[in-house]
């Protein structure tokens, strides 16, 4: 589990880096570019963060949903609120959608029986978690890199 905490910290750091980089240059975009960036960054960040937080939390499903939906709404509001009120709405919607998908992936990783995948071995479960979380971290890093690259071009 310690490795997943490390991956979560890396993801939060990448999201913060992306946010502050965007905030410094927010007056450079026109409307469509800002909409693309707000929805892309929100969807990617909330999907990956929701997956990691769900894997790490061992509470009941409703508590996991509550915490994660609040997190998604916060991230969406932050990224959308950089620009204007229309994009705040888009960011909120994308954040909630992304984090619900992240909760589903995390729940399946914690308990593969709900998708009728016959893995009950503990080490294999842990190995699955590590592999998919590492892969998701890699994807988030790529997405953040592309978003930051697109504001430069």
């Amino acid at each position: 589990m310690l490795g997943i905490v490390g991956l979560l910290i890396w993801n939060v750091a990448a999201a913060c880096f992306c946010y502050f980089r965007l905030r410094r240059r927010k007056h450079l975009f026109d409307g469509r570019h800002a909409a693309t960036i707000a929805s892309t960054a929100t969807l990617g960040v909330t999907l990956i963060l929701g997956m990691h937080v769900t894997v790490l939390l061992s509470a009941g499903l409703s508590l996991v949903f509550l915490v994660n939906l609040l997190l998604g709404a916060a991230v969406g509001t932050l990224f959308g609120g950089l620009f204007n009120y229309h994009l705040l709405l888009a960011g909120l919607y994308n954040g909630l959608v992304g984090i619900s998908m992240g909760i589903m992936i995390g729940e399946v990783l914690k308990n593969p029986q709900i998708c009728s995948i016959p893995i009950s071995d503990h080490t294999q479960l842990l190995l699955n978690m590590y592999q998919l979380c590492g892969f998701a971290t890699l994807l988030l890093t790529v997405v953040v890199g592309l978003v930051l690259n697109s504001i430069k071009a």
């Binding site: 469509r32 570019h33 929805s39 892309t40 969807l43 992304g98 592309l146 697109s150």
Partner: peptide, 14 residues
Amino acid sequence: DCQSMLTGLINGMM
């Protein structure tokens, strides 16, 4: 263009 590529990439990933 580049922005459509970002949108397509993130939707395809999800």
